[in-house]
Write a protein that binds this DNA or RNA. Structure first.
Lengths: 193, 193
DNA sequence: ATGATTTCTTAATATACCTTATTCTTTTCT
DNA sequence: AGAAAAGAATAAGGTATATTAAGAAATCAT
């Protein structure tokens, strides 16, 4: 039952027989993290790629001024990790931290390679997955450049309504790229309408 | 000779035999565009994905206020296109325009599908290509959130020194996400140092 | 080459967002 | 349950960048 979600996720793009399913799942480990626990810290080499089964992670970076910038939240059914560090096995610039008690499926770099070797169909799966991620990242990055903070906030709320109640305003601000103080002002202004 | 560059590009991630090379190339058409000519306009459905052989393209969007936002420049050896529109065959939100007289190799959606069907190895090629694009998009988008315009400009210059001389300041500003007037001020300030 | 168009510069004014500081509220820890 | 820590609200003053407008320089089209 820990595996239903990931099988369904994979099933969106490729079809697997029973043997393939079992092999695929054998490459993952189930891991649980408490709230605030780190899956990865800047400076470490990313040893795993993650699929969130339950809970919520934040993937973020701390800039020279010490400010936190959240790249994404990974809730149920989302893939995450620091791809650059995972692929090149070089120190990461990112932190990954559980915002809630979370359960993830993690795959190591060597198992990831093995997966492609044994079931080449997974090249297709990840090709499509990355293609889609790319599309939404480009879209988001264009939005960041053309919308003001208030519009970005509205757009986020509309796209991920459930997340508003799971994520603190502080984290929401770090995702939107504004200070918590300014987000607070925006919310007040929006309520007034 | 039109095909040397693309074969070398593909050769970074997968190895092809002669028959595969020829089939692969047969799926592309060579196209030439004059300066200012459009390869794609917002509202059209993206019929092709592009590899730039020579010249320079800009991929951009026009927001509600009428402001242009450049997602990327595609010079020699770069892939481009509007993936969302190309994959889903829905109207695009982007324009692609030649900034110089340019030569591209274009592949249609049906040939793209055929490529995966006939040479599954290309799933791997594109998996790796998209993975890398994703890494650099995320990196760029994080930079946009943590750096001021002057730092972004310096960083761009350092990363793509050749482009400064090929791209007008107006276009550079639209890429950096600032007005041309402000970029002009920045350049003056930077020269003063 | 000459005029027409586009790009670049400069400067004054305006605005979105930041910084810092204070208080209030909520959550966490023992 | 109470103390401590973290999050959220509010407000004053500051900075990065936008807007508007005008002139200078470069490029384009005949």
């Amino acid at each position: 039952m820990e595996y239903d979600l990931i099988l369904k996720n994979v099933g969106r793009f490729i079809t697997l027989d029973q043997v393939e399913k079992e092999f695929f799942l054998s490459l993952f480990e189930v891991k649980r993290f408490n709230k605030k626990e780190f899956l990865l810290r800047a400076g470490d080499i990313a040893r795993f790629d993650y699929f969130t089964n339950k809970g919520c992670l934040k993937i973020y970076k701390i800039d020279e001024k010490g400010t936190e910038h959240i790249s994404m939240f990974a809730i149920e059914d989302w893939w995450s990790g620091d791809m650059a560090s995972f692929i090149l096995q070089k120190p990461s610039h990112y932190y990954i931290q559980a915002l809630e008690a979370s359960e993830v499926l993690q795959i190591s770099r060597s198992n990831y390679d093995l997966l492609f070797e044994k079931i080449p169909k997974f090249e297709r799966f990840y090709r499509i997955l990355y293609q889609r991620s790319l599309v939404s990242f480009i879209e988001r990055s264009d939005q960041n450049n053309s919308l003001h903070a208030e519009e970005r906030y509205r757009s986020f709320i509309q796209k991920y309504p459930s997340l508003i109640h799971r994520v603190s305003q502080k984290n929401m601000a770090a995702y939107l790229g504004v200070t918590p103080e300014f987000l607070s002002v925006l919310r007040k202004k929006m309520l007034a309408k």
